[in-house]
Amino acid sequence: MSDDATSFPARLERASAATRALRDAIGQMIVGQVAVVDQVLWALLGGGHVLLEGAPGLGKTLLVKTLASALDLSFSRIQFTPDLMPSDVTGTNVLVLGGAAGGAGRFELHRGPIFGQVVLADEINRATPKTQSALLEAMAEHAVTIAGTRHPLEEPFFVLATQNPIEMEGTYPLPEAQLDRFLLKVVIPDPTEDELTAILERTTAHAVALPSRILGRDDVLALRALCRDVAVAEPVTRYAARLVSASSPDAPGASDLVKRALRYGAGVRGGQALVLAAKAVALLEGRAQVAFSDVQRVAAPVLRHRLIRSFEGEADGVTTDAVVASLVGGVPARPEGVERALQGR
């Protein structure tokens, strides 16, 4: 029994069942947005963080709260404001005086909201860069340093940050280098008419209870381990590397669009994120190996916030999504001879 339970097919089967249940639970709360939910799950399985970008009222916070509820992980929320201090995020040592006996006082650590397992950093671009950096350090290191003492954060540590793209006054856009910390940048699209109808019906009736626990801490960690076990063939890895290289305007084979519209391409972290997210996609699909199509699917959310546009690109209104689409369309996945033979069908 135990052999079967620890075998890869069994783990894969369990993971499929778990993620299916998680999807269903979230689906009961969130209307539509299937792709957004999938992308959040990719980040969860891949062990990365997500930057959610969308207009107000699209259910960003609800999605995160639902996910936290279904995962049975400690959830904390930080509402970023311009006067938010780093210690408000990380916590601080406070002096606790002695009791009735009049003993000596001592410092006690008052943990900040960052010590949650699922952290919602709402409207992250409203905080000052100093505060943003405190969060981003924790995201990269999975630990915080308070008064010289390093405090590891409890795993799984999963940050979902939101930002509003239409309200720019009084905001501090995240620096490009720190955007790199997010595995995915998920753009929440506007709902369709049917979806909007369903949202209106659902939110104007009695409140629906959040889903109960579906996955525990150990389950999430097991899923993350399984995600790392997913195999990637060397041609697929090479394809991911070619995509990343092609995004650099200084690369020898860079396309005209890349040269014109980009100042910097995706770096090594971009390649790592591509493979990791593709593994998560394969896992969610119940496959033990990554396909080219997995890499192509994750290319937009992985690369869109890592490509830095040039002045000309910004002036021409070239979006990073358009550049990623051109990369996916222009970089062949397979060797030239194989592609030719396939096209000759």
Partner: peptide, 12 residues
């Protein structure tokens, strides 16, 4: 893989 839609199972 491409012809059979095997999701790169064969090359892996």
């Amino acid at each position: 893989d491409a012809r059979l839609g095997a999701g790169e199972a064969i090359v892996t």
